[in-house]
Every structure is written in C-alpha cells, then in structure tokens.
Simulated scan of single mutants.
Amino acid sequence: MVANRNFYEPLWRDARLVEPERFNTWPLVSQLLTKATCHLEVAPGLRPRLPVDGTAFVDISMHALTKLAVGSGRPVMASIGRLPFADETFDLLCALDIIEHVDDDQRAMAELARVATIGATLLLSTPLHPEMWTPFDDFVGHRRRYEPKQIQALLHHHGFIIERSAVFGMKPRSSLLLDLGMWFLQHRRERAMKWYNRVMPYTMRLQKSLQLHEGLINTDEVGEVLLVCKRVSPGSTPS
C-alpha cells in the first residue's frame, strides 16, 4: 500500500477531477443506477465512474478524497482490505484497476463481498495474462496480471458470478508514448501533470463504446477486462 500511495498521492495532487459522465462506462452505470440505492467506489482517485454526489468513496490518497468531498461525495480514508462499512450495505460497487495492486487479493475480495448485499452488482476491471507484463505494470504498482481462470475462481470463491464482460482500457498503438509518459512522470512531474490536465479532455474522445457480452468474453490477446458481477449466496456460486 505504501508504494501505491507514494505513486498516486503526488499524481492526484496536481490532477483535476474528471466527471464520470465522460467515461465510456457511464451508459452502463446509468442503467445500473436505476435499481441501486447505495453505492460504493473503491480507489477511484480522481477518475470516479459512479456519480460523485451521494456515493461513498474509499481511497488512500488525501488529495483525491479532498477533491471528491468538494464534489459532494462521501469520501473515507481506508484501503480495500479493511472497508469501514457494515455488512451488506451496498447494492452497487465499483473497483476498477485496484485488485491487481493489492498484496492480499483474497482479503480484498472478501471485503467487497462482505459489504455487498445479496444481488448487488460489482463492476471490476483488471489486467490479464502475465505474459503481457510490461515496465508500465511495474511503474504503476501492479502486483499481478491474472489468468482468466484465476480471476473467475477468485470471484466465485467469494460469492460473485460474472454476468457480462467487455474489453476495457485504452491500449496505445506504440509503447513509445507510455515510455515517454513514464519518463516525464519520473523526472518532470509538474510539467507532465500540466500537459495531462490539458490533453485529458481530448483523449476522452478516443474511448470506444463498451461492447458488453454475456458471461466472460474470449480473452485471447485481451490486455484488460471489465467484469459486471452479481453477488449471490455462497450456496449458489458455481464451483
């Protein structure tokens, strides 16, 4: 967690909050909100996908939490491994690009299951295929990339089934852009963040619409996946 905080706290210090309506997840989220009454998003930084107003947010970055509070969110300083909420509190949960960062993913998933109501929806994304590991994974503090069967087993063990899924994330055509971005964040952070804040609104237009499919998609050569999961009673979880 210390390594993650050391990376993301300076990042969010100079970044701006991006409204969830600007992401390609918003049509899906809008649909889910019609039936959800209590929402939690874990580790959104300044890129929340659930509506800021009325959503409980957990993060380890004080800079992110402060800016989410200004936007009428309900921010709490905590980690995914110890969520400060009662059992079966939330019927819509979001944990994008987080499970691959934690040392103990079993505990993290157990906490998500604990605070979810039976029938709750969990939006979860994670990178796939260890053989796709790049220096960028190290740079942003990833602990692992999952094999598809591993993430399925982790979810099933904690009472979640995958209802729908889609290819996720924006993959650059060349690694040169990522390499350049990493260098600037390491050596010219202030300049990098000014550039990022200026360019971010335009890059949002490059997002492709989510192509959701029933169950788990064919993940061959898929670098990152978005999973729409349902919390079920342990007895009804597939083996």
Rank of each mutant, 00 (worst) to 15 (best):
R22S: 14
S209A: 15
L212S: 11
E190A: 15
K230Y: 02
C38Q: 14
L33V: 06
K149W: 10
T55H: 01
K171L: 14
R82L: 11
Q211N: 14
V167G: 00
W133L: 08
S165A: 05
R188M: 07
R144M: 05
R189N: 09
V2Y: 10
L93P: 09
F57C: 06
L68W: 02
A64I: 06
F90T: 01
E41C: 06
P10E: 04
E9N: 08
A69M: 10
C94M: 10
I98S: 07
M77T: 04
G54W: 00
R47Y: 11
G181S: 13
S239H: 11
W12Y: 15
A15F: 07
L180E: 07
H157Y: 07
P75I: 00
C229N: 06
L50Q: 07
V225H: 03
A43D: 00
D91C: 09
S239R: 13
E9H: 04
L212T: 07
K194S: 12
G181R: 09
L154M: 11
G215I: 06
L226A: 07
D137M: 06
A113C: 04
E100D: 15
I161E: 11
V18M: 07
R5Q: 14
S209V: 03
S79A: 14
A56I: 03
D138I: 04
R82V: 07
P75S: 10
Y196T: 03
E111G: 07
M170K: 13
F168S: 10
T89D: 03
M200N: 10
H156F: 11
W133F: 08
R205Y: 09
E88T: 12
Q31L: 12
T34I: 02
M193H: 03
F139C: 05
L32Y: 08
M200Y: 15
F85I: 06
D105H: 14
L93T: 00
K194C: 08
S233D: 14
V18R: 09
S209W: 00
R191H: 06
V228P: 08
Y8C: 05
M62H: 14
E221Y: 08
D220N: 13
M200S: 11
L28A: 04
P48Q: 05
G223A: 09
H63D: 15
N218R: 12
K194L: 13
A108K: 02
A36G: 05
R5H: 12
N4Q: 15
V199D: 05
H129A: 09
M132K: 13
D14F: 10
W195T: 12
L185H: 10
F90A: 01
K194D: 11
G81N: 13
L112K: 05
L206N: 10
S125H: 01
L176W: 14
A110Q: 14
P48I: 04
H39V: 06
K67H: 02
D104H: 08
